[in-house]
Nucleic acid binder design. Structure first.
Lengths: 145, 145
DNA sequence: CCTAAAACCTTGATGTTGTCAACTATCGAT
DNA sequence: ATCGATAGTTGACAACATCAAGGTTTTAGG
């Protein structure tokens, strides 16, 4: 039989089902934000990982984005061509190249960040008590990471 | 000055910060699952939207995935080439073509679904009370959607 | 010290995705 | 009966992802 054996739903499973809906909504917002700011998703993702004034080795960006080094080369190429980031030599290890945000890049990064920082409607309309409840449970969930 | 004016953080904002971490983790799991099952993310996403035995018009898939019709054509082409879905004419409206899962497609869809159904570690290790608390708050958040 | 292995980045090849414009076929409404 | 909208496909093009290969530099072991 092609019956799928369904595990009984624990509260964690049920919570996760709802969380996945929020995930989808969040992703849509991310894509919309990137598109409005004329960034491809991967470019927006890379910008989001950078801190102004803090140089990041390219391989570190590759690790964070869970992609190949050669992939980062291309993404940075295009960001650099638009004057959003700059490559810098790194004297301590001459194999490494650092990426830094230019002023324009930092400004754009902040705009992307600002859009992502707005919680989705579903969260915002919770009562203040529920908002605090949610925050506290989530803190307990990730504490120790 | 290039100072960024930061809004005071409401509990909703703080909850959203943590949620975004979970969402990133969820996304990584999705990508890993797709890759292990030899599916590109878009293909896995399309499979996830389909129900066995239920035919879906292609434009509906395009709407759900928030992408162009022509995009769906390509994705379905490749899924069909692998025998995971089939195109079917739709007599009531001959412009429309329906997509259905083949047995192999349904089986693969279930495998993707099963991996996504597992809540991430952070949720799973919450106490049963906290799991119920989280589930209930989230239900209140999305109720009425 | 010197050599071999490993790390970092780039390049090139290949396949998938996403978007746009054009085109065919079909439907719906006037 | 015709006109406008809709569904799907095709072709062109830029970006992305992954892999193999290669150059430079560092690190580790003999």
């Amino acid at each position: 039989m092609a019956t799928v054996t369904t595990r009984p739903q624990s509260p964690a499973d049920e919570a996760w089902v709802i969380l996945r809906r929020l995930l989808l909504a969040g992703r849509r917002r991310f894509l919309a934000a990137a598109s409005e700011l004329d960034l491809h998703p991967a470019q927006a993702g890379a910008l989001l990982q950078m801190e102004p004034e803090i140089a990041m080795p390219m391989h570190e960006l590759a690790t964070i984005l869970a992609c190949d080094n050669s992939n980062v080369t291309g993404i940075v190429d295009r960001l650099e061509a638009r004057g959003l980031v700059a490559r810098r030599p790194y004297a301590q290890d001459r194999r490494v190249r650092h990426i830094v945000l230019t002023p324009a890049g930092a400004e754009l990064r902040d705009r992307v960040r600002a859009r992502m920082a707005d919680p989705p409607e579903a969260i915002r309309r919770l009562s203040p008590q529920d908002q605090r409840l949610l925050r506290d449970v989530l803190r307990r969930a990730v504490e120790g990471d």
